[in-house]
Design a protein around this nucleic acid. Structure first.
Length: 304
DNA sequence: AACTTCGCCAACCGCTGGTAA
DNA sequence: TTTACCAGCGGTTGGCGAAGT
C-alpha cells in the first residue's frame, strides 16, 4: 500500500475557483484520512457533500466517498487477487461486461476500481499481446479455453487439502467464501492434459492433439443462474454476448482438440493470431509477462 | 549510475439516474 | 412537470516505483 503523499504535482494545482473554495485535490494526506475515518465512525457514511463540509475536509463529497469506499473502509481487502477471484472476475465479466460495481458485489472486500484496474492492466494486456480486441469473441474464447482452465488449475493447486479431485468442489468453496450463489458451484472442471512433454513441440498445431479427455468447464447456465435481481441487458448475456454465439460453446473441452473449435489456429491465422514460428513472436510463444496466462505454463500443465 | 520504459493503481472527470422541492 | 442536487458508475489520467537498457 502506497503511503498517502501530499499534493506536489501540477495536477494538484488549484484553479482560481478552487482556491476560492479551498478545495483540495490529489493524493489524500494521513490527516485527511483520519478526519474522514473518525467522522464516518461517529456519524456514518452517506450525504457525502455535507459530510465533507461537516468533517472539515476541503474535498468534494465525491472525493470523500471514493476515498472511503476504495481505501479507508475497514473491510477492504488488500493484496493480489486470488485465482478464485480472478476466475470469478473473468466469469462475471463474460456475463455482465464492464459492470464493475456489479462484479465487485460478488467479490467481498474488493472494489470496483480494483477490479477495473485488474481488467485493464492484466486482462487487456493479454488481449494486446494477442493482437485482438479485448471485447472480441476470439479473446473471450481464448480466456475461456486457456486462462480460465489455468486459473481453475491454480485453485486446485492452492487447495491441496480438499479430498475431491474435482475442481467443482473448489469452486463450490469459492462460491461459499464469496457472495456468489451456489449455482456457480456446478461449473468448472479442468481438462486433463496429455502427459507428453509439450515443450519440445510448441509449434505443433494443437488442434491435432488427441489425448485430452472431455470435461466441461463452466456451463453458462451456472453463471446465468447467479442470483441477479436486476435485468441483465440482452446484449450482455447468453447468445448475444459480444454479438456472438452462446457462451456454452467454448466450455466444452473437446477430447480431440482441447475445445479449440472456436479458437483454432486456422481461424486465428487470419487475424495474426498464429503466424509463423515461435521465434517470430506469435501469440503462442512470445514471452508473456503475466504468468497467469502464459502458454508455456499451459503447456507445462499438460505434463502434470 | 543514469536514463528510459513499463505496470500498477489512486484519484479525477463526465455522465446518468434517482429524488426532493 | 421542471429543475437542481446528489450518489453512483465507468472511463481515463498521471504519479510513482520497479524493471530494463
Amino acid at each position: 500500500m502506497r503511503a498517502a503523499m501530499p499534493p506536489i504535482n501540477t495536477k494538484n494545482m488549484s484553479t482560481p475557483l478552487e482556491e476560492e473554495s479551498e478545495l483540495r485535490r490529489g493524493p489524500w494526506t494521513l490527516e485527511e484520512d483520519t478526519l474522514l475515518t473518525h467522522y464516518i465512525a461517529r456519524h456514518g457514511e452517506g450525504r457525502w457533500n455535507m459530510l465533507a463540509k461537516c468533517a472539515g475536509l476541503k474535498r468534494t463529497g465525491k472525493s470523500c466517498r471514493l476515498r472511503w469506499l476504495n481505501y479507508l473502509k475497514p473491510d477492504i481487502k488488500r493484496g493480489n487477487l486470488t485465482p478464485q477471484e480472478q476466475l470469478l472476475i473473468l466469469e462475471l465479466h463474460s456475463k455482465w461486461g464492464n459492470r464493475w460495481s456489479k462484479i465487485a458485489q460478488h467479490l467481498p472486500g474488493r472494489t470496483d476500481n480494483e477490479i477495473k484496474n485488474y481488467w485493464r492492466t492484466r486482462v487487456q494486456k493479454q488481449a494486446r499481446q494477442l493482437n485482438i480486441e479485448s471485447n472480441s469473441q476470439r479473446f473471450l474464447d481464448a480466456v475461456r479455453c486457456f486462462w480460465m482452465p489455468r486459473l481453475v488449475q491454480k485453485v486446485e493447486q492452492a487447495s491441496p487439502s480438499s479430498s475431491s479431485s474435482s475442481s467443482s468442489s473448489y469452486l463450490k468453496e469459492m462460491c461459499t467464501q464469496s457472495s456468489v450463489p451456489s449455482q456457480l458451484s456446478s461449473c468448472c472442471t479442468v481438462p486433463s492434459f496429455p502427459t507428453a512433454s509439450p515443450l519440445a513441440n510448441k509449434t505443433t498445431d494443437i488442434s491435432n492433439s488427441s489425448s485430452v479427455t472431455t470435461q466441461n468447464i463452466c456451463p453458462t447456465d451456472s453463471i446465468n443462474n447467479i442470483s441477479d435481481q436486476t435485468e441483465i441487458p440482452q446484449h450482455l448475456t447468453g447468445s448475444n454476448v459480444y454479438g456472438h454465439t452462446t457462451l456454452d460453446q467454448c466450455y466444452n473441452i473437446d477430447s480431440n482438440d482441447y475445445g479449440m473449435e472456436g479458437i483454432s489456429f486456422a481461424s486465428m491465422s487470419g487475424v495474426g493470431f498464429y503466424e509463423g514460428t515461435p521465434s517470430e513472436g506469435n501469440w503462442m510463444c512470445n514471452e508473456m509477462s503475466d504468468d497467469l496466462w502464459n502458454m508455456d505454463d499451459i503447456w507445462q500443465l499438460r505434463s502434470i
